[in-house]
Structures are given as structure tokens and as C-alpha cells.
Design a protein around this nucleic acid. Structure first.
Lengths: 164, 164
DNA sequence: AAACTTTATTTGTCATATCTAATAACCAGA
DNA sequence: TCTGGTTATTAGATATGACAAATAAAGTTT
């Protein structure tokens, strides 16, 4: 048997991805938040981002510089942060991705940890998985009867709980 | 409106989690692989783990030491690695979690990147999400008719593709 | 038991992503 | 225009998790 599937540590993938020039998870978080903030407030600033992301302004400055180097934002020292076209496109994808995952977790019935789970998971889903989630969301959204069956099943299982 | 949800970067959560003494993603990978390997081969060794995880033995040594400090494995220099009772319990949970996620991705129709996605996502799901996935897997597994509907829906959507 | 092979450890490096403390630039009111 | 408050940057520190190269211990073979 060649049952040796290619396992990797998470960090292994991060290194792999960094080589193919994608954003890091952290940069994705910042970009997504810039996109949100520009949408809601017209522009973004270091302190505002830091506040919304629960990090220090100094950390934010560093990341903004990287995003600028990648041509995703326009920015100069002490100024406002705005997205380039490229940044808007990416930002909009990131936000959409977030929403797809969050909707899915809502369907699953995750309440308490939904935002946290979304923020953890969003960086790690491939396009393929994301499409799958999107499709499943739609399927369940558009089939209320199935959704009802599912909810009934969930409740039924709640007591006869053989896992966890 | 107090619409200020508590956003965090991934690293933000990692730091939060580290304080509550959980394993890091990396340590989980190693522990899961030790569990697999002990199951399949009776025991684990540094080189074997390094090989299966696609890392270097030197990296492995470091992590094994940490797992030992946490009371999850028995190990001494140049020896074999075995799980403590605590380690077995955790390892078994980690493997189960892996399987739940992988089954779900299979249902979603993720093929190419299924293993990779699983390995990325598994560290990031809460118990609550995991339960949800487990339940959904069972629901779909036990309702072949719904599964068929879902597959039909997926195929129908494939052409009229309004997302990605 | 000496030589050779396999296995594992040590040491030092690199990159990411955070933080704190000190400093600098900007801006508005008196 | 000076000056105080806000905003942002810089510099230096810490932690994680990976790597390679050199070294050391253990095991095997004759």
C-alpha cells in the first residue's frame, strides 16, 4: 500500500503560499478591514484600523506599508488610506468570502463563536471549498423544506448525542 | 448603532488561545500524526514523523519536547515516542476532527485540495462548528434524496455561475 | 571492538506578526 | 504663531515555527 498522503504542517502551507506571492493571513485581515472601513466611512486611517482590528497602531503602520508595496493601497505617511483598483477587487473578494463562511456557520447553528470561527477559517479555504460553501448556502436557502428537515434532524440528535 | 463587532486578526486569536494554554496549530499537527503513526506502526520516531509531516527532524525534536513538557507524550533522547493517556485522548479527538472536516469537504465536492483544506481548516474550527459539521454530515449521509437534490442543484448552478 | 550507517540533537538563522516606549508630524484654537 | 492634543512612525523586543549544517549518540556488521 502506498497510503502515504502528503501531510504538511500548517506552517508548511504558509511558506508554500508565501512563495506564490499571495497575501498572508494577517495582510488579508487588514485589507478586508480597509475595504469595510472605506465602504462605511469613505476612507481609512491607521488608528481607526488598529482600533477595529484590536491591534496597536504601530503594527498597522507596518502592514499598510506592505500593502502599499504590493500596490493594493494608496498611502503616504500620516495620510489617509485608500484602496487602489486592485485593492478594491481583492478587498471585495475577501469580504464576500467572509460573508459566505459566516452565512454557512449560521446555517450550521454556530452562534457564540461564529465571528471568531469565520475569521479563523476564512484564510484557509480554497476557492474550491468556497464555491462549495456558496452553493450549499444557496441550496439550503432556496429549499426551505430541506432546511426544515435539517433543523428537525439537529434537534433530534441533540439528546442522542454520540459525539462530543 | 453599536455595530462594532470585535474583529481580530488571526494572530490576535492565536495569542488569545495561547494564553488559555491550548496547543498551537503546529503542535496539533504533530500530535495528530503521532496518534496516526502509533496506531498504524505501534510507536513513533522523530525521523518517521518528520518524513510524514514533510518537515526536518530538527524541527520535530523541538516540538516533541514541548509535547513532552505538556505531558502528552513519553519520550527520551534517541528513543521512541509514545502517547500518554492524555495524549491519546487528545490525539483521538484531533483525528476525529480531521475526519469530520474531510468528510464534509468531500460532500461539498472538493477534490483536488481536500487534504490541504482539511489540514488548514481543522485548527480553526470550534467545538461548536465541529458539532455542526458532524451533524450536517450525518444528515446528508442519512438522507440520500436530499443529497441527490443537492447534487442536482450543484450541477444546475455550474453553468449559470454568478460567483467566481 | 572498530568502522560504518542510521537516527536524533544542537546551534544558529530567517521571516512573520505582535508589542512597548520614545519620537515625530500634523492640526486647531487662543 | 505658538502650543497642546491627536495621530502616526520608528526602533527595539519577544515569540513562534520553520530551515540547514555540524555534531553526537545509537545500532549494526563483520
Amino acid at each position: 500500500m502506498n497510503n502515504e498522503r502528503e501531510f504538511r504542517t500548517v506552517r508548511g502551507y504558509q511558506i508554500l503560499d508565501a512563495e506564490s506571492k499571495a497575501l498572508t493571513a494577517s495582510m488579508e485581515d487588514y485589507l478586508e478591514m480597509i475595504y469595510r472601513t472605506c465602504g462605511e466611512e469613505g476612507y481609512a486611517r491607521v488608528n481607526r484600523l488598529a482600533e477595529r482590528l484590536n491591534v496597536r497602531p504601530s503594527s498597522t503602520t507596518k502592514v499598510i506599508k506592505k500593502l502599499k508595496d504590493l500596490g493594493l493601497v494608496n498611502y503616504q505617511k500620516y495620510g489617509v488610506i485608500k484602496l487602489t483598483e486592485k485593492g478594491k477587487a481583492l478587498g471585495s473578494f475577501l469580504l464576500k468570502r467572509h460573508e459566505v463562511i459566516e452565512e454557512f456557520l449560521k446555517i450550521l447553528g454556530v452562534e457564540e463563536t461564529r465571528l471568531k470561527d469565520t475569521e479563523m477559517i476564512e484564510h484557509d479555504v480554497s476557492i474550491s471549498t468556497l464555491r462549495g460553501l456558496y452553493t450549499l448556502n444557496r441550496f439550503l436557502r432556496e429549499s426551505p423544506d430541506v432546511m426544515k428537515q435539517y433543523e428537525a434532524f439537529r434537534i433530534k440528535l441533540k439528546d442522542s448525542d454520540d459525539f462530543l
